[in-house]
Design a protein around this nucleic acid. Structure first.
Lengths: 225, 225
DNA sequence: CGGGGGCTTGAGGCCACTCAACGATAGTGG
DNA sequence: CCACTATCGTTGAGTGGCCTCAAGCCCCCG
């Protein structure tokens, strides 16, 4: 599965994200791997051998119903850690949305370090808590918000995470957004058109995935606290 | 707030749930408190001073939108631990659904023990992971399932958790169920009627909260894997 | 016995879904 | 370089599942 290991040099960022800042950790080796657009990184129910961090690119984590309905639980962007499982198996399928390079580390070696380092185990809890918090907020969105509110919330979330130079470049398709927000892709398109018509945002150039937010305050008023 | 501390004797179950089985733990003291039906245990955004476990009764955890829409994230039944926050503040409001007795422990003292005990900190992670898993499954339900599927899934979940002698006694109202499933209470009632008409379940006596499942297999076929 | 809360059921309306057509863009191969 | 094709996004028209509003029942409780 991990046929080509692009690089096997330990990466400081990875370690610092888990709280192992100063000392060199001989037990932990970090590798890198690049997944092509649209390919699976791991599948739901698969044994969780690795923990991942996005170096470049974007990843979607989702669950499927037996008839094909899909719910995306999270998008993972540069810097995000994903695939961290306490039980032994992955609970989502993870796919590269675009060509994506990930850092990876054996779950086993991470647990080994965590067992002896209070700092590391505390950071594992911290990462899990962040995921939990996001899931809890998303339950509120999925259970109680209107389509327009969902799209507005999505734009604000992405704005915080990937806006550079005033422009937000979405890596994911309308279908991905729809399956994240629990609505249909046509509904996403209609909501975006409505927000564009209201002067809240604009598309840049000929690519519909480049968005500039003209009025974040008014956009926020379409969502609710 | 905790005016009457009913009992201050450490309870073995609480400790064992967090992995402190054998040794006496002088740092941790467990108290009990009883909340009357409908009263708040803690509010969203409040500093998290205690961690709780349901001894008897039932609790709902929910978030509100500013216009009053409510999303219940979880029901906590006998034995369940809730209110465990890694950050310092509660992310839900918790209310007693019926008269409820909880065991409680200071968050601070728990963290103190966790810092020195790998077993305890591992169990904190384990509890958090269980919550995360539930939230992830619930996102799929809220984002992608039909009303009938949601109610079927709810009945199967509750069946696992509180069926005694073939009868399931729901502590929560139709409105609570609706706000848990992201639908309206009328829709819950209609789905239950439909399932009753299909012979999958029956109400017992004159109380509509006592339900007996006549055909779990067929009920499961209304939900989806 | 009157009042209120919880539940069910009916009738009508609306928001999001379904189905469909169309335009634009990127990638492919002749 | 230019069809050719596939993919993605937008928009329109009509449908339907769930929501809204309302009435009525049952049971508990004062």
């Amino acid at each position: 599965m991990f046929a080509r290991i692009i690089a096997a040099t330990p990466h400081p960022n990875w370690l610092s994200d888990l709280g192992m800042t100063s000392r060199p950790e001989p037990l932990v080796s970090v590798s890198e791997f690049t997944h092509k657009k649209g390919t699976e990184i791991y599948g739901e129910e698969e044994p969780a051998e690795y923990v991942y961090q996005v170096k470049t690119g974007a990843v979607r984590s989702y669950k499927l119903l037996s008839d094909g309905r899909r719910q995306i639980g999270a998008f993972h962007l540069a810097g995000d850690i994903f695939g961290l499982e306490n039980s032994g198996a992955h609970r989502f399928t993870a796919e590269a949305i675009v060509d994506t390079t990930v850092r990876l580390i054996r779950r086993q070696s991470l647990e080994l370090v965590a067992a002896s380092s209070a700092v590391v185990s505390k950071n594992l809890l911290s990462v899990t808590t962040r995921d939990l918090q996001h899931a809890e907020d998303h339950m509120l969105l999925l259970g109680r918000k209107t389509a327009l509110e969902r799209v507005a919330a999505f734009l604000l979330e992405m704005d915080k995470r990937l806006t550079a130079a005033g422009v937000m470049t979405l890596p994911m398709s309308r279908l991905d957004i729809a399956d994240y927000l629990g609505i249909r892709l046509e509904t996403v398109a209609r909501a975006l058109s409505q927000l564009r018509g209201a002067g809240v945002l604009d598309f840049i150039g000929n690519n519909q995935r480049e968005i500039v937010l003209r009025d974040r305050v008014r956009l926020a008023s379409f969502d609710l606290a």
